[in-house]
Simulated assay, not measured.
Amino acid sequence: MTACMFIHGFTGSPMEVEPLATYIQQHSNWECIIPTLPGHGNELRLKGIMYNEWLLHAEDTLRDLLKRHDTVYVVGFSMGGLIASYLATKYPIKKLILLSAAAYYVNFVQLQKDIRIICADFFRGRMRENELFTRYINKIKSTPLAATIQFRKLVQYVRPLLSNIHVPTLIAQGEKDGIVPLKSANYLYNTIRAENKKIIYVEDSKHLICHCERKELLFQEIITFLKEPS
């Protein structure tokens, strides 16, 4: 039996990866599971949460899947990509998918472009319609500084481990991601030591890559990669 575990990002929820999980369920008979990391979900309660709690929660979920399935794949989005990478260094997963994985974060060039769009909508009186503005403001309001520090600690902890990854790995990165820069995907590709590795750049995609306009093509690439012989 086969299972696929999906890990969402910092301050996020299963919604970030649900479109991909749904697609894979529709095109396979695999068990798909999206755990909600401590402090995350529809209502953020990040105060007092340490980064190792996110790692331990993901480990517990993965160990349960490994007990029940011969083959387990792990998909990680944004910070979840770093957690998925950590798991790949410790557990016998078969393949790894990294989506907008935050080995580096904050793409200042794209962020400036996004801010210009937000400002233009402000002067047109269309702020409520601007999804980028709503997302950024909600994240800022609900994210304690201490939680951001824990996120940075997680990145610093996992980044030196990336060279220990040897399982087949697919990396996907949105070309217009304002949160994670292209150099993050390039760094992952150059650092991970898997013989079978692939990198995909998704045109016009911002950070929420599983919700972009080209998601169907991306999902096809992902499931093809997972189903092909190692």
Rank of each mutant, 00 (worst) to 15 (best):
residue 157 Y to S: 00
residue 219 F to P: 02
residue 3 A to V: 06
residue 75 V to F: 15
residue 203 E to A: 15
residue 207 H to A: 00
residue 60 D to H: 14
residue 27 H to Q: 08
residue 109 V to R: 15
residue 75 V to K: 14
residue 22 T to S: 00
residue 89 T to W: 09
residue 122 F to Q: 02
residue 105 Y to C: 02
residue 218 L to A: 03
residue 88 A to H: 05
residue 107 N to C: 00
residue 22 T to Q: 01
residue 133 F to P: 08
residue 115 I to Y: 12
residue 163 S to I: 04
residue 168 P to L: 09
residue 65 L to V: 07
residue 204 D to N: 06
residue 91 Y to T: 12
residue 62 L to F: 13
residue 31 E to I: 13
residue 36 T to W: 15
residue 95 K to V: 06
residue 89 T to S: 14
residue 103 A to G: 11
residue 136 Y to C: 02
residue 91 Y to L: 10
residue 56 L to R: 07
residue 143 T to P: 02
residue 124 R to F: 10
residue 78 S to E: 00
residue 45 R to I: 10
residue 146 A to I: 07
residue 213 E to D: 03
residue 139 K to Q: 11
residue 216 E to M: 11
residue 151 F to Q: 08
residue 72 V to K: 13
residue 50 M to I: 15
residue 22 T to W: 00
residue 178 G to V: 04
residue 161 L to M: 03
residue 81 G to E: 01
residue 152 R to K: 11
residue 33 I to P: 02
residue 153 K to H: 01
residue 167 V to I: 13
residue 193 R to D: 06
residue 227 K to I: 12
residue 101 A to C: 04
residue 153 K to D: 01
residue 30 W to G: 15
residue 203 E to K: 15
residue 36 T to G: 12
residue 89 T to G: 08
residue 30 W to M: 15
residue 206 K to M: 03
residue 157 Y to H: 00
residue 141 K to H: 02
residue 226 L to E: 05
residue 172 A to Q: 04
residue 10 F to A: 04
residue 52 N to D: 06
residue 161 L to Q: 00
residue 25 Q to M: 13
residue 185 A to R: 01
residue 24 I to G: 07
residue 62 L to C: 13
residue 96 L to G: 02
residue 120 A to F: 11
residue 201 Y to P: 01
residue 34 I to D: 08
residue 175 E to A: 02
residue 200 I to Y: 03
residue 189 Y to A: 07
residue 42 N to P: 03
residue 225 F to T: 04
residue 174 G to F: 00
residue 216 E to D: 07
residue 193 R to E: 10
residue 109 V to Q: 07
residue 190 N to S: 12
residue 67 K to S: 09
residue 138 N to P: 02
residue 165 I to Y: 11
residue 129 E to S: 06
residue 222 I to K: 10
residue 83 I to C: 10
residue 156 Q to S: 11
residue 128 R to C: 11
residue 96 L to F: 12
